[in-house]
Simulated scan of single mutants.
Amino acid sequence: MTARHRLEECEVAVKFIIKEKVPEHAWWDDEMLGRVPTEVMIMSLVEHENIVKCLDLFEDDLYFYLPPTPRPNFSRRASYDLFECIEQSKHKRLSEADARYIFAQVVEAVHYLNSQGIAHCDIKDENLVIDRDFKVKLIDFGSAVVADPNAPAPFYTLFFGTTAYASSEVLRKQPYQAPPAEIWTLGVLLSYLLTGHSPFPTEADAIEGRVHVRERAGGPRISSDALGLMARCLERDPARRADVGEVRAHVWLQGALVRG
C-alpha cells in the first residue's frame, strides 16, 4: 500500500509481510531487531544505490510493515516495475543501449550483495523498479539467503524463486549453490531485456541449456558481445558458468553506467 511518511514528508510504498506465512528457514535472530524475517534483516543492512533499503520497521500481531527508503524519482507516478517498462516499450523489448544500462545496474547490485554473502535468489523483471531515468532498484528479498562471504558457498536443496528463471541444476533437482544460480537468472533477465522473451521456449530447453534468441524481424541485430555475455550466464554447468566478477568485467558492460 502507499502511505505518507510523516517525518520524511514523502510518499512511500509499504510492504506487508504476513508473519504466519514466513517459512521457518526464513527467520533471523538479530540483537537489535529481535526475531525478524531474513529479508527485513537484509534490507536494514544493505547500502547500495541499486537496492531498496528499509526506512522503518513496524509490526503488530499479524504483520511486519516495511516502508522503503524514498527517492524523488521513485514516486508512484514516476516508477514502474521492469516488466511494465518492457511491456510499454514499442516492440515489448528495449533498445540494446537501454538494456545494457539497466543490466549493468543489476549486475552492480548483485556484485555488492555477493560481497556481503547475500544472494537475492529471485531476480526478475517484476522485482526491479525503474524510474523515468532508467535508474534501477532491486526489491523483494523474500527468497534471499545469507552465507559467509569468505567461505565456500553452501549447497541448497529447496528453491523459492521463480521457475521461469530457475537454473538448469535447480530444474534437474540437484543440490545447487546460490551464486551460480543467481548468474543464470541474470542471463534470463538479459534475454527479456533484449528480446522481450525467455531464452528457453520450454523447461526441457532450460534443463539442457539450449538458448534460443528471438530477434525481431527487420529490427536491429543484437550485438555479438551481448549474446556472448548471455551465453556465459546460461552455461549449463554451474562450475563453468561465469561468476559475477566475470560478468561485471565483460566487454559489453564496459562504460555501460555512463549515459551519454
Score class of each variant (00 low, 15 high):
residue 240 R to C: 08
residue 105 Q to W: 09
residue 156 Y to M: 13
residue 118 I to K: 01
residue 235 E to P: 00
residue 21 K to S: 05
residue 189 L to G: 04
residue 179 P to G: 14
residue 178 A to W: 04
residue 238 P to I: 05
residue 48 H to P: 10
residue 54 C to I: 15
residue 149 P to D: 07
residue 180 P to T: 04
residue 144 A to I: 08
residue 20 E to I: 14
residue 232 R to Q: 04
residue 200 F to C: 09
residue 158 L to K: 13
residue 200 F to I: 03
residue 134 F to E: 03
residue 214 R to W: 01
residue 95 S to V: 05
residue 56 D to W: 13
residue 200 F to E: 09
residue 96 E to A: 14
residue 46 V to H: 10
residue 86 I to S: 00
residue 134 F to T: 00
residue 172 R to Q: 15
residue 177 Q to T: 15
residue 177 Q to R: 15
residue 39 E to K: 01
residue 236 R to F: 02
residue 136 V to H: 00
residue 8 E to I: 10
residue 219 G to F: 05
residue 227 L to D: 11
residue 41 M to E: 01
residue 79 S to P: 15
residue 59 E to A: 10
residue 84 E to D: 12
residue 40 V to Y: 03
residue 22 V to Q: 07
residue 90 K to R: 14
residue 187 G to M: 07
residue 217 A to P: 15
residue 142 G to N: 00
residue 88 Q to A: 09
residue 124 K to C: 00
residue 141 F to N: 06
residue 97 A to N: 07
residue 203 E to D: 10
residue 166 A to K: 07
residue 196 G to F: 02
residue 107 V to C: 04
residue 166 A to Q: 01
residue 21 K to M: 00
residue 38 T to K: 05
residue 124 K to M: 05
residue 215 E to M: 10
residue 46 V to W: 04
residue 226 A to V: 00
residue 73 N to S: 04
residue 227 L to H: 15
residue 246 E to Q: 08
residue 110 V to F: 08
residue 120 H to F: 05
residue 89 S to N: 15
residue 188 V to F: 05
residue 144 A to H: 07
residue 93 R to C: 06
residue 153 A to E: 07
residue 50 N to S: 09
residue 187 G to C: 09
residue 7 L to W: 02
residue 195 T to A: 09
residue 34 G to M: 00
residue 53 K to I: 14
residue 50 N to G: 04
residue 207 I to H: 13
residue 165 Y to C: 09
residue 242 A to M: 09
residue 23 P to D: 11
residue 260 G to A: 15
residue 56 D to Y: 07
residue 43 M to W: 03
residue 96 E to N: 11
residue 128 L to E: 00
residue 164 A to E: 11
residue 171 L to K: 12
residue 238 P to S: 06
residue 210 R to D: 02
residue 25 H to F: 12
residue 75 S to H: 03
residue 170 V to D: 12
residue 196 G to A: 14
residue 168 S to F: 11
residue 159 F to G: 14
residue 11 E to R: 02
residue 205 D to G: 15
residue 93 R to Y: 00
